[in-house]
C-alpha cells in the first residue's frame, strides 16, 4: 500500500480528542448565569422599567450646564495635579521596587518580601485605600494623592519586575564579565532592555491615574469627584452632564497624547 493512501485504520483515528471538561464547564457557566439572574430578580419587566427611568435622567441632563465653569475647572485641575503627582511619586518608588522584586536579579529572600509588599499595594481597591487615607490624614488632595501612589506602586512595580524577568540574561552575563558592579549592570544591561516598555507602563499608569483621580473625590480625597458627588446629591443633573463631558474630554486628550508618545518610542 502506498504511503499516501490512508489505511482503513487511519480513517478511524481521531485527530482531535473531545474536550469533555471544557464542554461541561461551559454548560455549568450557562446554567449558573440563568439561576443567578432569577435569584437577583433580573427580568425583562425590571429591565424595561429601568430603561424608562434612565430616559428621564438623560432628559434632565440635556443640555449640559457649564455656568459654574469656575468650580468645574478648579476640580479638574486638582484631579490633574493629583494624577500627575501620584504617577511621578509612584514611578519613583516602583523603579527600585521592581528591580528588587525581579527574581532573576534579586535573591529570593529579597524578592519574596518585596513582592509581598507590592501584592499588598495591589490587593485593596484604590477607593478603599483613599477612604483609609481620608480617615488617617484628613480630607483633601493629600489623601487622594497618597491613595493613587499606593495603587500605582501595586500596578507598575509588578509590571517592571515582570519586564525585568523577561530580559536576556546573556547580555547581563556579558556586562558582568567586564567587571561591572550592580549599578553598572543595571545601567548597561538591564535598563536598555526594558526602557521602552517601562515608559509604556508609566504612560498607561498616568492614563489610569487621570481616570482614578476623578473618582477619589467622591470619598473626600480631593479633585473633581467631590464636585460631581455634590451635584448628584443636589439633583443638578445638567451640571453632572457638564462634569462628565469634561472628564471624558480630559481622558480622550490624555489617550491621544500618550498614544503619540508611545508611537514615537517604537
Amino acid at each position: 500500500m502506498s504511503a499516501t493512501h490512508p489505511s482503513p485504520e487511519a480513517a478511524r483515528r481521531v485527530a482531535f480528542a473531545p474536550n469533555w471538561p471544557m464542554r461541561l464547564a461551559l454548560l455549568a457557566i450557562v446554567a449558573y448565569a440563568i439561576w443567578a439572574s432569577s435569584r437577583l430578580g433580573l427580568s425583562w419587566d425590571r429591565l424595561g422599567h429601568g430603561l424608562g427611568e434612565g430616559g428621564r435622567l438623560l432628559a434632565r441632563m440635556v443640555p449640559p450646564n457649564f455656568e459654574r465653569w469656575g468650580l468645574l475647572l478648579e476640580g479638574m485641575l486638582e484631579s490633574l495635579q493629583i494624577a500627575v503627582l501620584a504617577s511621578a511619586i509612584g514611578i519613583a518608588i516602583s523603579l527600585p521596587l521592581g528591580v528588587l522584586a525581579a527574581r532573576n536579579l534579586s535573591p529570593w529572600w529579597i524578592s519574596g518580601p518585596v513582592r509581598a509588599v507590592i501584592a499588598v499595594c495591589r490587593s485593596l481597591h484604590y477607593v478603599i485605600v483613599a477612604i483609609l487615607f481620608v480617615k488617617a490624614i484628613g480630607f483633601g488632595a493629600l489623601a487622594g494623592t497618597a491613595a493613587l501612589v499606593v495603587a500605582s506602586v501595586g500596578f507598575i512595580a509588578k509590571l517592571f519586575a515582570e519586564a525585568i524577568e523577561e530580559i536576556s540574561m546573556k547580555q547581563v552575563e556579558a556586562i558582568r564579565a567586564t567587571g561591572a558592579g550592580v549599578m553598572k549592570v543595571l545601567a548597561y544591561a538591564v535598563l536598555p532592555q526594558v526602557a521602552s516598555r517601562f515608559i509604556g507602563f508609566c504612560l498607561y499608569q498616568l492614563d489610569s491615574n487621570l481616570r482614578n483621580s476623578t473618582l477619589v473625590g467622591i470619598v473626600g480625597a480631593g479633585g473633581i469627584g467631590g464636585t460631581l458627588f455634590a451635584a448628584f446629591k443636589r439633583f443638578d443633573y445638567d451640571f453632572v452632564a457638564a462634569i462628565l463631558l469634561s472628564i471624558i474630554a480630559l481622558i480622550f486628550l490624555a489617550e491621544i497624547i500618550s498614544g503619540r508618545v508611545r508611537a514615537a518610542l517604537r
Binding site: 552575563e173 548597561y188 526602557a195
Partner: peptide
Amino acid sequence: RRRIGMVFQEYNLVERLTVMENVLSGRL
C-alpha cells in the same frame, strides 16, 4: 574580572545600545 576578556557564542551584545556603547562597556 576586568582582567579577563570574554567573547560569547551568541555575541551577547546589549542589543539596544550602540556599537560604541557596547565597545566602551569593556571599560565598565
